[in-house]
Design a binder for these strands. Sequence first.
DNA 1: CCACATAATCTTTTT
DNA 2: GATTATGTGG
Length: 753
Amino acid sequence: MSIPAPHADDAAPAGPTDAPVPGYLSALNPAQRLAVEALDGPLLVLAGAGTGKTRVLTARIAHILFSGRAWPSQVLAVTFTNKASRQMRERVTALIGPSAEGLWLGTFHALAARILRRHAERIGLKPNFTILDADDQLRLVKQLLEGARFDDKKWPPRAILGAIERWKDRGLTPEKVSGTEAKDGDGADLLGLYRAYQDRLLTLNAADFGDLLLHGLTLFTRHEDVLAEYHRRFRYILVDEYQDSNVAQYLWLRLLAQAHRNLCCVGDDDQSIYGWRGAEVGNILRFEKDFPGAKIVRLEENYRSTRHILGAASGLIAHNCGRLGKTLFTSVEGGEKVQVRGLWDGEEEARWIGEEIEALQRKGHALSEVAVLVRAGFQTREFEERFMTIGLPYRVIGGPRFYERQEIRDAMAYLRLVAQPDDDLAFERIVNVPRRGIGAATVQTLHRLGRDARISMVEAASRLVATDEIKGPARASLKRLLADFDRWRGQLAQSHHAELARIVLDESGYTAMWQNDRSPEAPGRLENLKELVAAIAEFDGLTAFLEHVSLVMEAVEGAGGDMVNVMTLHSAKGLEFDTVFLPGWEEGLFPHPRALEEKGEGGLEEERRLAHVGLTRARERLFVSFAANRRIHNLWQSSLPSRFVGELPAENIDLVSRPGLFGAGSRANAWDGRARPGQSTYGGAASPRDRMIDGRAREVRSPRPASAFRVGDRVFHVKFGYGRIVAVDADRLDIDFEKAGGKTVIDSFVTPA
DNA sequence: CCACATAATCTTTTT
DNA sequence: GATTATGTGG
């Protein structure tokens, strides 16, 4: 079957083709088929884990096209991650062939950027605007902070950037931020800083990630003609992982969909794990209200996991309130119970997991079908070490990324500056790399002039080298650098872009810098630079390459050998494995205290959803484990099993734990027999044990005097967060909390930080 | 202006 | 335990 060749974008294709029921439909179950065939009007597909969500989305796209309702270029399919969009493109291509290229398929950010580039002038940018990475953003905030009077204890640059991003996530430009939010309790002018930040971005001809959507919103609301153009274009809109969308993304979608209302959102409220990044579970919970007359289809038949795995996951997630509610079921029989294992410490846990994996390997299981999923990135280390010593092949997914390496960022900064002279952040990064004798003082001067005259630093530099403002060697090398860039830009038209990249790196002395570097990592860096030049050659031009890098900050997935996969729970979303290990299910680690600190009960529920995501990654074998002792910050701390362990239904798990491992004295019997660990913790009782909410109320040290805390100690409190002890009175501590201010608390509520 | 040493901070997750 | 920010001395 093939799709007619596309022509004008706003015309509709001729009409339905009279084909028999095609394969992509007959392979679906009734619910899935409903979701695929309900083409007109708003549709919400609640798709539990493993219920064939991607299959439905791809079949729906195929169905839209084959039924003759739209050309590929009239279909907008939005995903959340690059991985998901790549996967969807592959699967759609498999169904409909090369015409899939015409689809508007990509991440929110990539699609928004694509649209924004076409109309950049309308919001005061040039079409070649730079997309900033996290590094640039932070540097920019730091610069702005130099002028402003901010308490850097309370408002470190990171936190300020966070506040700005949260506003952007909610679709709020500086004008729309309400007065009550403008300042914090102490009168720090956050909004002013936000305004300055946005101002600066415009003069830099740059946009950060949030801007891609925020400007998109401005574009659509202020320029009806532009919006109308996209209304004509996009006849069908599909959204994956809708539960992860933030308010800005929701508004963006709503604007685009309001003409045709052919909006299909697929999501699972039980897998919403990006609240910390501004995702709004409310978007999915409110869908029916937002789009009256919406159909809702639930996909509840799970094709992935065994009965016990599913039972464990469902039992756990049932502890959350405010769900839309789905009941996953499977018709598959058999399968073993989930193994829940208590171990002495992290090392033993890693050893045990290593042994289990080796046993599977001996039985002929593929390592690439095994995953170890951890809560936080640093936890991968323990497994890396263990797997290395026993010679078990593994790969860490989502570790430090290629484009985040120092040498790559430096090289990128050179290229960005060739492509876009106003990119001050790139300029600052490399003015003195390699060393050219242009120090902080000179940069400061450029900066001041740039800000005062509202021009870029490159511009400021070219003005200043003509004067005597800058003296001596700095002036000479600055002049030379500017001349270099002029020359490179001149070559942009003639030379091949990859060749130009090589020229830039050589002539700037950047390559030489690493060649002369005697440190052990220098050769690797040179290697990476070569790789970078090779990667550039894969693209049509320098601009296309830069766009790719800023939006798809990941290197091509390494050769997929047969290796164990180690990654965070977050990056595991959307993946599945025959065997899954979930280590570190301890209070104080998972749920992560910071998640609890920031959002209380809501934070806990998000952590629980994260646990649910982890459990549902497994097809056949699932192992949950926790350690009684763990070293964090170089301090040994004893931990209690995560409350989530206690929420796994007893009938679905096999609990193995050495008696007496957990707690001390009378508390040990909590773990004799088959007591449900953590059970009582949930619900907020107040027994002494329950007070140790984060599970490591005590450091393991020699017997503690009545008050182990001293004035000046930094501590952590589940409710109030981090703080410093001001006074100690027996077991009562006066603490100055960073966020919550001064409080008096009982020492057992607090842990050393 | 740069190099070195020390201190401090931190480890949630990503487009 | 490591990386990164800050300070000091040349």
